[in-house]
């Protein structure tokens, strides 16, 4: 009770912050249940008339379940591939000694300095030459590796004590064995953080899927939902209902994995 008395200003500030964070989401839920006129009226209407039909409309107007499946496959594929490839490369950069290592690493980092749009045309042409336009592999391939992920994992491996590795080497383990059985288990928090970032980025990725895939059936949700947007007019309640359904799985995932997430993010100091 004494503590509560002293802490109330802190709680007040935190409560205001929390409300400000939740507000846009709350407004989205409200809008998804409004009619079009309610959603566009000024002054704004707070209580919706519970238009559940908006959700049905999304399912009618877009192949929602098919696109949800595409998003899940794309996100899973990209995330697993990144965890594997980025940590492999990162381990080499952090611990193996080979000529030109630091030069290559700097070259890799320079990729981070270039805006992604610059890769658009070359990547498109590669995917086209592979005959992967309009397919799931075309969606996944360019997202299987990232310079950022490699950098992040390298920094992580650098912090691990060298003694563990030396002990493994004395026991006769080769580099791959050390990586897989010793270092990777130790890198769990880093992998988790990278995984979360990749899942988020991949789930929301809009530009690439829109450019490489053209059929609604081969698009992920992010691109598919954009079909609900008009040039001069948009049915906001239906769009909000669609976005809500699209973000629900990610929100559930976050709630389940909350503890690991906070650990991972606190560790890397990034968001």
């Amino acid at each position: 009770m004494r503590n509560g008395g002293r802490l109330w200003p802190v709680h007040l500030v935190l409560a205001i912050g929390a409300a400000a964070m939740v507000m846009p989401f709350f407004w989205q839920v409200l809008t998804s249940l409004k009619t079009f006129t309610e959603a566009t009226r000024t002054p704004p209407v707070w209580i919706p008339s519970f238009e559940w039909g908006n959700f049905a409309k999304v399912l009618d107007e877009t192949p929602f379940l098919q696109q949800l499946g595409n998003t899940v496959v794309m996100t899973t594929g990209r995330t697993l591939a990144q965890l594997l490839f980025c940590s492999l490369a990162a381990y080499a950069f952090a611990r193996l000694r080979f000529p030109g290592r630091d030069v290559i690493f700097v070259a890799l980092l320079s990729v981070l300095m270039v805006p992604g749009q610059l890769f658009l045309i070359p990547q498109y042409q590669i995917v086209q030459s592979l005959g992967w336009l309009n397919t799931l592999p075309g969606l996944i391939a360019p997202g299987m590796f990232s310079a950022f992920g490699t950098f992040m994992m390298r920094q992580f491996f650098m912090t691990l004590p060298a003694e563990v590795e030396e002990a493994a080497r004395l026991d006769g383990a080769n580099p791959l064995r050390i990586f897989w059985s010793v270092m990777l288990p130790l890198a769990r928090p880093g992998l988790l953080a990278l995984g979360v970032l990749t899942v988020l980025w991949s789930w929301n990725d809009l530009m690439w899927p829109l450019i490489v895939n053209t059929d609604p059936e081969s698009m992920p949700l992010s691109a598919g939902l954009s079909a609900l947007q008009g040039e001069h007019m948009t049915d906001y309640p239906v769009l909000m209902a669609g976005s809500l359904m699209a973000s629900a799985p990610i929100i559930v995932l976050f709630i389940i994995m909350q503890k690991q997430l906070i650990q991972g993010i606190a560790f890397t100091g990034s968001k």
């Binding site: 658009l120 530009m207 450019i211 040039e231």
Partner: peptide, 14 residues
């Protein structure tokens, strides 16, 4: 269909 914002990027790329 491509939304207006991305339409021209996509067309240029394609």
């Amino acid at each position: 269909f491509t939304p207006n914002k991305e339409y021209w990027t996509k067309l240029q790329t394609a």
